[in-house]
Design a protein around this nucleic acid. Structure first.
Lengths: 191, 191
DNA sequence: GTCTATATTAAGATAGAC
DNA sequence: GTCTATCTTAATATAGAC
């Protein structure tokens, strides 16, 4: 793919993700998507094979990036707080790169058909690795003895929904956001 | 309405909310809804006037409850931490009462047609009142000087998504959840 | 209160011309 | 790579019988 131009296929994915964020997968028609790109719906099928394939591509692309990311973090020889901060940084980076894709990941995964099981598998493994980081922190004494499930839920929910908020706050620099979120999410639970 | 039986209309709202949570408003058809209730789609129209009306009813009912609730909390003569804990308790209570409606509120509000402006108005007022509680706490010194916008986002996101989590965790008692969440959300920001 | 039958509109997708 | 034309299916909703 050329550097500063997206292939037509990539353009379709990008436009679709934006529309999916606004109205959800089911409410976006192939005619909506085509109109947004200035072509007719039938022309889309020269580049993609189905609406379903567009959704799969968008969601599994991001899910795979999160999976690789958490594997790298888990493999680090660092303490729990460094790992948690790396998880926060990864969410901010991937969300800033692709906020519309993150929205589809969060809200439209249940409309995956053939790839649903694969997606659920990736998500469950991600959650387990994240929970394990928390559990290690509690065992080592780095984290206070708060309720694990509530803490896992609270942090992951905040991170997963950053797409609702990041694009509007262009004035906040990425490093400041990583610092600010780390303080708010972690300061209360550090020993 | 009789005490232990829902009117047919209420039954429709309740069933619809559950289906909306699973697949989203747009992906649920009147035939799906009717089948779930053991009748034909046409029969639904003896009780309700449109699919759109079902969505309005579900969302605005909850949004109104949140609005009354925050008005009561804002009117209390208590300190900031007590007010924040009351907000947390309200979210937990309303979500536990109606997790499916909360899902529709969060995910399907953009499909409101005639009532969209009214909904957005209620939501904006709620957010403003919540932000004002945080700002008062910072002025009075009860809260640390953390980034206001990040804190507002983080707490509200966690509370708004409780529906994803509360129904699965029946073993957690409500009071424990209020305590646990208050610790995790607030302990890091108290002075 | 529910049914069958149906009107109307719009969806995803394909064929074949240019 | 895009178009027009079209197939097939399914959506919301109404009319009128029981």
């Amino acid at each position: 793919m050329k550097l500063s131009t997206l292939s037509r296929k990539q353009e379709i994915y990008k436009t679709a993700a934006r529309l999916f964020k606004e109205k959800g997968y089911s409410a976006v028609t192939m005619r909506d998507l085509a109109a947004e790109m200035g072509i007719k719906a039938a022309s889309l099928y020269n580049h993609i094979s189905s609406k379903q394939q567009i959704l799969s591509e968008i969601i599994l692309d991001i899910a795979t990036q999160f999976t690789s990311g958490i594997d790298a973090i888990t493999g680090q020889e660092t303490n729990t707080l460094a790992k948690l901060k790396a998880v926060i940084a990864q969410h901010i980076t991937l969300t800033a790169d692709n906020p519309y894709g993150m929205a589809a990941l969060n809200n439209d995964w249940m409309h995956l058909e053939g790839k649903l099981d694969h997606y659920l598998d990736l998500r469950n493994r991600y959650e387990k690795k994240f929970r394990d980081i928390i559990l290690e922190g509690k065992e080592s004494g780095e984290l206070k003895d708060v309720n694990t499930e509530i803490l896992v839920y609270s942090i992951l929910t905040t991170l997963r929904n950053l797409y609702l908020w990041i694009p509007k706050k262009g004035e906040l620099k990425k490093d400041e956001l990583i610092e600010g979120l780390s303080i708010i999410l972690l300061q209360g639970v550090e020993s």
